[in-house]
Amino acid sequence: MAETAVLEINGLEKSFGALKATDGVSLTLRPGEIHALIGPNGAGKSTLIHQICGTLRQDKGSIHLSGRDVSALSVAERARLGLGRTFQISSLAGEFSALRNVMLAVQARQGSSFRFFKPVMKDASLVDAAMERLGRVGLADRAHVPAAELSHGEKRQLEIAIALALDVRAFLLDEPMAGMGPEGSKTLTRFLDGLRQEAPILLVEHDMDAVYALADRISVLVYGRIIATGTVDEIRNDPTVRTAYLGDHA
């Protein structure tokens, strides 16, 4: 624990009326690790993610990114500090080509959206950087296809290319495996395995095969509360987890 956490969440609480959606959640993301967050439907995973990336404000508790308190910052400010979130379904800009989606992320990273005259397609600093990211996720030959027309798996790859373009310090991957075929899941699992070298990953995922294959640590969220955190083996053999969540699957 001596190593400073990239992402540190402390005593987070969020209620919707009488419902405690997040009930004193604390967790850390250390450099180089994949930390999986699992839990049954309705456990409050989405609410937690919304608070981490800033779309929801917590009632109590704090969120630190690389030692800096980001609890009161906006979504865009947190993103600029290096929080890279991928989404379950939506594309960044569906009408734009994959290339232009990644170019937009490069542009965001450079922090310069108020330039009015130079055409982006003639801006080598955008195009080259974007093509390089697309190449890394294996989408280079699909660069000019509108994002909305990409296949499910390709959209996921695009999401990751966008996160790569942002030079993020921490990835927040929201169910990257959802809707992928077994072949696609395998490829993506291999890819994510390498991705942790870039930045640690907080992985929210239902696909337990992927979680067991990838996670260094797993946290189990049930009714807004983390009931256990540990290595794959510890979680697999934890009796509370088995009753609360894993049931027959373990």
Partner: peptide, 28 residues
């Protein structure tokens, strides 16, 4: 035409398509 193909134009059109996502990459 210039504005549309510029960085500003790219950001503006992306905001139309999905403002939540645009914020998530750090553009307000």
């Amino acid at each position: 035409g210039l504005i549309r193909s510029s960085r500003f134009g790219a950001a503006l059109q992306a905001v139309r398509q999905n403002d939540v996502r645009v914020a998530s990459i750090g553009i307000k």
